[in-house]
C-alpha cells in the first residue's frame, strides 16, 4: 500500500510541477530580475556580454584556425549560444535543491517546480542571447540561412527542455545527497566545453578520431540548437543518439525520483 501511495505522490509531483507554471515562471523571472535589479540595462547585460564574447572570439579564432570569417562567425555564435544554455542549465541544476532549501522546508511545492525554475530561467536567458545572432544572420546570410529547417528550433527546444527535466531530476537529486558532486559536475562541464565542437569545427578533426564526436552526446545537443539556427538539418545518426540519450534520461530519472523523492527534504 505504501509503495502505490508513493507512486501516486511521485506522479502527482510531476503533474502539478507542470500545472504550477505560474509559480516557476515567476520564480525564474524573479531570479533574473533580482540579478540586475539596480542596473539600467537590466537583463540586456546578458545580451551585451554575450555579444562582446562571441564577436571578439570569432575574430580571433577565425584567424587562429585560418578559417573564413564568413563560415566561422555563424558556426561559433550559434555554438556558443547553445553551449551557454546547456552548460548553465547543468551547473544550475546541481544546486537546484540547495538554492531552494529555505522554501522547500517552509512550503510544500512539488519538487519538480524547482527543476522547472532552473530550466525556464535559462530558457529566458537564451531568448536574450539569441538577439546576438541577428546581426550575424544579416552580415553572413550566405552561410547562415533561414529556411524550412529553422522551424525545427521549436520542437528541438522542447526536446532540450524534456532532457533538462529528466537529467535535472537526476543531477539535482545526486547533488542534494552528495554536496561534493556539485563541484565535480562543474569541472566536468568545463572539460566538455573543450571536447565538444563549439570553438572548432568537426571537419578539422582527423577522420580516424571522428568517433570522438560520435561518442559525445553533448555535440548532438549543441546541434539541436545550432543546426536550425544555421538553416541546416540534423543527421539521422545524431537523431539516433538523441533518442537513446533521452530514453536513458527518462528511465534513470523515473527510477531515482520514485525511490528518493521523499528523502530530498531530509538531505538539504
Amino acid at each position: 500500500m505504501k509503495t502505490s501511495m508513493n507512486r501516486n505522490k511521485t506522479i502527482a509531483d510531476l503533474l502539478s510541477g507542470f500545472q504550477n507554471w505560474r509559480i516557476w515562471l515567476m520564480l525564474a523571472y524573479q531570479d533574473i530580475k533580482l540579478r540586475y535589479r539596480r542596473s539600467k540595462l537590466g537583463p540586456f547585460w546578458l545580451t551585451l556580454s554575450m555579444a562582446v564574447t562571441v564577436y571578439s572570439m570569432g575574430f580571433l579564432y577565425a584567424h587562429l584556425f585560418k578559417i573564413d570569417l564568413q563560415a566561422y562567425y555563424p558556426f561559433l555564435t550559434t555554438g556558443m549560444i547553445a553551449w551557454t544554455m546547456i552548460s548553465t542549465i547543468i551547473n544550475d541544476l546541481a544546486e537546484t535543491f540547495t538554492e531552494s532549501a529555505g522554501t522547500i522546508k517552509q512550503i510544500k511545492l512539488p519538487y519538480t517546480t524547482y527543476v522547472h525554475r532552473v530550466i525556464s530561467r535559462n530558457f529566458i536567458i537564451f531568448f536574450h542571447n539569441i538577439v546576438v545572432y541577428i546581426p550575424i544572420l544579416i552580415l553572413f546570410h550566405e552561410v547562415a540561412k533561414i529556411n524550412m529547417h529553422t522551424l525545427m528550433i521549436i520542437p528541438n527546444l522542447l526536446l532540450l527542455y524534456l532532457n533538462g527535466l529528466s537529467y535535472g531530476v537526476v543531477i539535482a537529486l545526486i547533488c542534494a545527497r552528495y554536496p561534493d558532486m556539485i563541484q565535480i559536475v562543474k569541472s566536468i562541464v568545463q572539460v566538455i566545453f573543450f571536447m565538444t565542437p563549439i570553438l572548432w569545427s568537426p571537419s578539422i578533426l582527423p577522420a580516424k578520431y571522428a568517433f570522438f564526436i560520435l561518442l559525445n552526446p553533448f555535440y548532438c545537443f549543441v546541434q539541436l540548437i545550432r543546426a536550425p539556427l544555421m538553416g541546416q538539418s540534423i543527421a539521422l545518426s545524431e537523431w539516433g543518439i538523441l533518442a537513446f540519450v533521452t530514453a536513458l534520461g527518462l528511465t534513470f530519472a523515473s527510477y531515482l525520483f520514485l525511490k528518493y523523492r521523499a528523502r530530498i527534504v531530509y538531505w538539504i
Binding site: 505504501k2 501511495m5 505522490k9 522547500i104 522546508k105 512550503i107 510544500k108 521523499a262 527534504v265 531530509y266
Partner: peptide
C-alpha cells in the same frame, strides 16, 4: 511540518 506534507513520514502513514 509533517502535517503540512513538508516532511513525509519515514515510517507510518
Amino acid at each position: 511540518k509533517l502535517m503540512a506534507d513538508i516532511y513525509e513520514p519515514t515510517r507510518g502513514t
